[in-house]
Write a protein that binds this DNA or RNA. Structure first.
Lengths: 139, 139
DNA sequence: GTGCTTGCAAAGCTTTTGCAGACCA
DNA sequence: TGGTCTGCAAAAGCTTTGCAAGCAC
């Protein structure tokens, strides 16, 4: 568990996983990323992808998104931003702070909970699904 | 998948599961709730608890919280409120809107994403852990 | 009586882990 | 060279599902 104090090596696998994730604008699950990564390094195993995603996440190099359909998804963009889940196609859309209004600086009243961080997520319809209202799942 | 249009029966099991969950101020996982429910109905199975939690959730009678440690947790209080995860003990604390400041009415700019809902969660230290700073996990 | 629901057990999925060999610094 | 990392496969952990019997309405 003492990953923070462990000496890290930037192996070829770790670099490829990190690089490929940052190239993507989607928010892939470990398995989906494995498929992509294998194009650059055919022999890489799924276990290695899982292990490195944990390492990259603990090192603060990537974001891990949970609670969006049973499996974890990853985001190579670590700039502070929000996420919006499309209820029709399941896609996760990035929302930069400038695209969201009405949020000041959320804080919990003194004494109730000592918050060190917060997260604001949305759900609804992505642009593709919103402009294509009829029953046409999977945009 | 057409649970919405299915005729529902309020069986003894379903009622006990719902009643027990609403009595709790914690946010139990299915297995933890199973332990509690068995005190009122010894023979009830874990599978039944899982099945009914899904039904109660889809019917909007309970909340399902995901992404807080690998397994789903449930909340019998469906009033709009926030959740705060204690990073030390793992407890989830309820935060009523009146206990949170700086949040107006979050909304996404037109054209970017058609949001129908949003969720604001916090993380930090619960009162018990905050007042007990030393390395003493599990409050 | 109809068909939704249950208990039990098996299966399913995602994620983690053990191990021996390989590799990076 | 030493400790980290990888590939492979097995295991773990949570949740879902098939089936026959049971129960609500």
């Amino acid at each position: 568990m003492d990953l923070a104090g462990k000496q890290r090596r930037m192996t070829r696998q770790r670099r490829v996983i990190w690089d490929e994730l940052r190239k993507l604008r989607t928010h892939p699950s470990a398995e989906e990323l494995h498929v992509v990564v294998r194009r650059a390094m055919p022999g890489i195993s799924l276990g290695t992808v899982y292990r490195n995603l944990v390492v990259l996440w603990k090192d603060g190099r990537i974001l891990r998104l949970e609670g969006l359909g049973g499996r974890a998804r990853y985001d190579g963009d670590i700039r502070p931003h929000h996420h919006a889940l499309c209820l029709r196609c399941g896609r996760i859309v990035d929302l930069m702070p400038s695209q969201v209004a009405g949020v000041g600086d959320p804080r919990v009243l003194d004494g109730v909970f000592k918050a060190t961080g917060w997260r604001l997520d949305f759900e609804g319809l992505c642009p593709a699904c919103a402009g294509n209202e009829p029953e046409t799942p999977g945009c």
